[in-house]
């Protein structure tokens, strides 16, 4: 077994812990924080069912973004849907036998990779070329795109430039899942790809990537518009009714 296998295996345990633990802490924080006032934004659904549909449209179709700006929407869709396909395709490295639906999306995964890279390139171009987007960008906004582009490009390069032994890669990750460290093929491209993924996993809970869980907790999007029919009082506000009923 090579040192690289050992290092990557350990780093992936660490990254998985940071990723999952960090996200859990964040999500628990969002969930625990009260939303004392009803602030859904129009068009606000009047039922929970309506909220589920609204959230689904928001998360799967980027409805609000569509209303806002077609360019950002198209590039965002290209990137996120591409990424989703890529992630699904990568499930084959963690499952044996490969789930049938994961096998079914295999041929599309590679187009997902291309879409993802195209979308990212477009988003970065926007960030560099459009004056007002450049104005609001921080170095981390650029670096995040570089990181994701790096992951996408190194992944595509392994498909089209230097093909590592994917059977061995799969053996490594299946082993990793069971705390048994298997040799990782000797490929600089693969090391680069995996290193960038590690960075992404570790950065995720501490960065703007929190928009992913955040959207589900956004009060303007997840609240039912029923404030006249139902009395909503958070715990800290309810105490006021008892202690200071006259203000």
């Amino acid at each position: 077994m090579t040192t690289a296998s050992m290092v990557f295996a350990l780093l992936f345990y660490l990254a998985a812990l940071v990723f999952a633990g960090g996200l859990l802490v964040r999500i628990a924080g969002y969930a625990r924080t009260p939303a004392p006032l009803r602030i859904p934004t129009t068009p606000a659904p009047t039922t929970i069912r309506g909220v589920v549909f609204r959230m689904a449209r928001e998360v799967m179709l980027f409805e609000s973004l569509f209303k806002a700006n077609l360019w950002i929407w198209a590039l965002g869709i290209l990137f996120h849907f591409g990424l989703a396909l890529v992630v699904l395709r990568h499930l084959r490295y963690f499952t044996e036998p490969v789930w049938f639906w994961v096998a079914a999306v295999q041929p599309f995964g590679i187009y997902g990779g291309m879409a993802m890279v195209l979308g990212l390139a477009g988003l970065w171009a926007r960030r560099l070329l459009v004056e007002r987007i450049r104005y609001i960008s921080t170095p981390s906004d650029h670096l995040m795109l570089v990181l994701l582009l790096g992951i996408g490009l190194s992944g595509l390069a392994m498909q089209y430039v230097a093909h590592p032994d994917v059977i061995a890669v799969k053996r490594f990750f299946l082993g990793w899942l069971h705390f048994s460290i298997q040799p990782l093929p000797d490929s600089l491209l693969l090391y680069l790809h995996l290193s960038l993924v590690l960075v992404l996993m570790i950065v995720f809970p501490f960065s703007k990537l929190l928009h992913a869980p955040g959207v589900f907790f956004s009060p303007t999007r997840n609240q039912v518009d029923d404030s006249r029919e139902v009395r909503h009082v958070s715990a800290w506000a309810a105490r006021m009714d008892v202690e200071r009923p006259h203000g």
Binding site: L65, A68, I72, I136, K208, L210, H211, G214, S218, P219
Partner: peptide, 11 residues
């Protein structure tokens, strides 16, 4: 949530 979630997309 709003302090964390913004990605500076510019919408």
């Amino acid at each position: 949530v709003y302090m964390d979630a913004c990605v500076h997309c510019g919408a």
